[in-house]
Computed example of a mutant assay.
Amino acid sequence: MAAAAHSAILPRRGGIAGALSDAFWRHPGFLLFLLLTPPVLWLGIIYLGSLFALLAQSFFSIDEFSGLVQYEFTLKTYGELFKAQNLDIILRTVMMAAIVTLAAAAVAFPIAYFAARYARGKWKAFFYLAVMLPLWSSYLVKVYAWKLILAKEGILNWLLAKMHLTWLLEAWLSLPIVGGNSLSFSYTGTFLVFLYVWLPFMILPLQAALERVPVNLVEASSDLGAAPAQTFRNVIFPLALPGLVAGSIFTFSLTLGDYIIPQIVGTSRRFIGQAVYIHQGTAGNIPLAAAFTVVPIVVMGFYLWGAKRLGAFNAM
């Protein structure tokens, strides 16, 4: 027995590897420091450092005569955001992001609820495949495909013509704000593409939250005489709210910063992402581009603050 116990004790390793192993075992905090230092440096220098550099650029200004950046602290660039044309860009982008987020929640909730409550086995696998499949294809391919679908010669116009509903589409496109020459050159087309591209980012968090809703609570609510609307309002929705907030953060923030979809599908009126791209590249007004990029950060900060005040993060 003593010989067996003695053989179970491994001999001490020699050399540098053995010394390091002993040092890490005696000082686990030092090992944790070595493991965390690279990602913390990456986060602090590359990510946060670039954000602070961007914020610093927004406090500079452009000399109107020479077009050169004046490296002097000023709030002049932020004042330019309140000019009519720039304020219009900000309001247009925030409104589009809010509408896309609300529409994504309305479309995603029944899909996620069905997958969480009723889909089993191969049908649940089919659900995940159907939701994830659009994410596997190229972002640009999806946007250009939708441009072809929404064009005057696209399949959607062809289908409406076969159903003798062209008059309805023309009436919609004649509206002053949402309309345009065609769906591919209108805010309606921009909204549809935004909704399609970001919808999986709303469905998956909602489905995960609804999976955690206990079935016995729903059944107890029904047994106590609650109508389906009351069960949804008092049981299902509060428990699914963290997933809804998580999905809305994705859809709202992604819509705020995107510039490719409005550039390909939409009117000539700019969004924040397009304004940043133009001022950074074509116009060369880096301070104004930096000030525009601060806007989504501030908007998302207020959004998260409001969600926290409403208790949306309490169940997370």
Rank of each mutant, 00 (worst) to 15 (best):
G154W: 08
L129K: 10
I236C: 02
Y187Q: 14
T190V: 08
Y187H: 13
A151V: 00
L169R: 13
M132H: 07
S186F: 10
S221V: 02
F126V: 07
A161V: 05
M132E: 12
V235C: 02
W172H: 13
L241A: 14
A226F: 00
R120C: 05
V245W: 06
A229I: 08
Y139M: 00
L206C: 09
A227G: 07
T188C: 09
F201R: 04
N216G: 08
L135C: 07
L160Y: 05
F191L: 14
S138N: 11
E153R: 12
H164A: 13
L168K: 09
S221T: 02
Y196R: 06
V193W: 05
R120G: 08
S138L: 08
S184K: 01
H164V: 03
A115W: 10
L159R: 00
A151P: 04
L168W: 04
K162A: 08
E219D: 12
V218F: 07
L140T: 10
A145P: 07
A151L: 03
R233V: 02
D223I: 03
I155C: 03
I203E: 10
R117N: 05
S222Q: 13
Y196S: 07
G121I: 01
G180Q: 06
F191H: 02
P200R: 02
E153G: 06
S182T: 14
V141Q: 11
L195H: 01
V235E: 04
A229G: 02
R233K: 03
A145N: 14
F201W: 12
M163Q: 11
L210Y: 07
R117M: 07
Q207H: 14
P242K: 14
A161W: 11
L199R: 09
Y118R: 15
A171D: 12
L210W: 03
Y187I: 03
L140V: 04
F191K: 04
E219P: 00
T231Q: 09
F194H: 13
E219A: 11
G243M: 12
R117V: 09
V245Y: 05
L175E: 08
R120P: 05
H164E: 15
T190K: 00
V143W: 00
L165M: 15
E153V: 01
A145T: 15
A119I: 06
Q230L: 00
P205D: 03
S137V: 12
S182Q: 10
Q207R: 13
L148T: 10
Y118S: 14
P242A: 14
L173K: 08
N181W: 12
V197Q: 07
A145D: 08
G154T: 06
A246Q: 05
L129Q: 10
A209R: 11
R117F: 05
R233G: 06
L133R: 02
A246S: 14
E153A: 12
F114M: 14
T166Q: 15
L165Q: 15
N234L: 01
L135I: 10
E211W: 11
F127W: 11
S221E: 05
A116V: 08
L129P: 11
A220T: 15
Y128R: 01
T166S: 15
R212F: 10
R233T: 07
V141K: 13
G121K: 07
E219C: 04
L175N: 06
A208I: 10
A209P: 07
Q207M: 15
M163R: 01
A130L: 13
E153D: 13
A227Q: 13
A226N: 00
Y196C: 05
W167E: 15
